[in-house]
């Protein structure tokens, strides 16, 4: 709309003088690439499978990253892990949330995933992810669930805050994935998925599927399978899900862990 001349003349009598921006400490603090995950162990390794997968992938790709505690409410889509590249940008670019978006950014820089890798990725998302969530969300593993998915600060809040936080976290995790997670997973299909992975691995040390340019023998599938199997044996070793994991996959997970983090447990 055109501003009438007399009104414009009045406004022009009051020119705006602009001073420099007020310094902002918080933006200056984010100099490094940061990966926000639910929780980290004493070894500074992410506890949940998705956070562990991204952290491992970044290490394999030789990208320096500072792993920090985050909250799923850091982004509107409520997805962790969250990757924030260095240097805050006003348009918010350089922020990637959720496993798929981060993989798209990291692997997209390397090369496109091939069809076989895509197939295994869908299988992991569908069967292993839901079996993992169904197990850790069951009442038997509430303590482990809170250890993996909430920070020490949240866990140490007094009643009733801790109860509210826990219920909200369980709701948030239950709503993850394509469907609302049911508390019982289908052990038959999960077992089939795990055995097809074991068959694919065979006697080889690594899957070498979804090959990464600087990943050596490791491929993306190695990292994704490792992140689930390692998390299962680390946090719910006595669960029904753990009993379904073939020996070759658990040995593979130990191998990948030693290869990437140079330590074995």
């Amino acid at each position: 709309m055109r501003v009438p001349g007399p009104v414009k003349a009045v406004f022009d009598q009051f020119p705006l003088k602009e001073y420099p921006e007020i310094s902002n400490h918080s933006a200056a603090n984010e100099r490094d690439v940061r990966l926000f995950v639910y929780n980290v162990g004493p070894d500074h390794i992410a506890m949940d499978p998705n956070g562990l997968a991204v952290q491992t992938l970044m290490k394999v790709l030789g990208k320096d990253v500072e792993v920090a505690l985050g909250s799923p409410y850091m982004t509107k889509n409520e997805k962790l892990p969250l990757l924030v590249l260095s240097g805050g940008k006003r348009d918010g670019s350089g922020v990637y949330s959720g496993l798929d978006e981060i993989l798209g950014f990291l692997v997209g820089e390397e090369e496109k995933l091939d069809g076989e890798m895509e197939l295994f990725k869908v299988m992991l998302d569908k069967w292993l992810n839901e079996a993992w969530l169904a197990t850790i969300l069951s009442e038997d593993y509430e303590k482990q669930c809170l250890t993996v998915y909430s920070s020490d600060r949240d866990r140490s809040q007094p009643w009733p805050a801790n109860r509210i936080i826990t219920n909200q976290l369980l709701d948030h995790l239950g709503a993850q994935g394509r469907h609302r997670v049911v508390r019982h997973f289908n052990s038959h299909t999960t077992s089939m998925a795990l055995h097809s992975l074991a068959t694919k691995l065979g006697d080889a040390k690594f899957f070498s599927v979804g090959q990464l340019a600087c990943g050596g023998n490791l491929g993306l599938l190695d990292i994704l399978v490792y992140s689930y199997i390692w998390s299962i044996f680390k946090h719910i070793p006595n669960s029904a899900l753990a009993s379904l994991v073939p020996l070759s996959l658990s040995e593979h997970a130990r191998r990948v862990h030693q290869y990437v983090y140079n330590s074995s447990e």
Partner: peptide, 8 residues
Amino acid sequence: VRPSATVR
């Protein structure tokens, strides 16, 4: 989806 560092 991409709030400021302070909000994050």
